[in-house]
């Protein structure tokens, strides 16, 4: 698997990969309107990245992005999430206060009671938290798969079990 699979699998996975990523980003961005959210969309995008990793091999993938960059991305998502919660403490009253709801310029409109119109400009701080958690989940889950695949890419069969290392 370290050298990758056949040319057919590589081509088909390269064609399918943008559709999976667009679908996952749609789930993340519309988390406050349709079912799904940051974790679900991040899991979908990480599944697409894992498909690309399996098709092309871990050596090719580690040349594209390294696990240190993924770790930095995941920490960025975590810091953004906690910073949004702390901004609720600054501008509002308590931790995790939804301080953006009801304002005039960003995600501030309020749908009426029992409204069925999907207005994207609603939700207060929820879309920003969805983006932060989505970035965190994409980077975290793909970092786990990438590190495990790259670390075991040169093993012979049963080498780890026999205690030769």
């Amino acid at each position: 698997m370290s050298m990758g699979m056949s040319k057919i699998v590589k081509t088909v996975s390269s064609v399918v990969f943008p559709f999976i990523v667009i679908y996952g980003l749609y789930i993340i961005a519309h988390g406050h309107l349709t079912p799904g959210g940051g974790f679900q969309g991040g899991a979908v995008v990480a599944s697409g990245c894992a498909m690309l990793l399996v098709a092309h091999g871990s050596i090719w993938t580690i040349g594209k992005i390294r696990e240190k960059q993924l770790s930095i991305l995941e920490s960025t998502g975590a810091v953004a999430f906690i910073l949004l919660a702390l901004l609720g403490l600054v501008f509002g009253t308590v931790f995790f206060k939804n301080f953006l709801v009801g304002n005039k310029f960003l995600f501030g409109e309020i749908p009426g009671y029992l409204s069925r119109v999907a207005n994207f400009n609603t939700g207060g701080v929820l879309p920003l938290m969805n983006f932060a958690v989505g970035l965190k989940v994409i980077a975290g889950l793909f970092a786990i798969v990438l590190v495990m695949a790259y670390a075991t890419s040169t093993f012979k069969k049963g080498e780890m079990e026999d205690g030769k290392r």
Binding site: G37, F96, G112, L126
Partner: peptide, 30 residues
Amino acid sequence: QTEVGANNGVTSVVFDYRGFDTLGEATVLF
């Protein structure tokens, strides 16, 4: 829909009403 301003009730519970649960989940993943 009037307090949080989101049509999706599940996401408003996860990120607004029960935000500390999501913070713990993020800590577990990290």
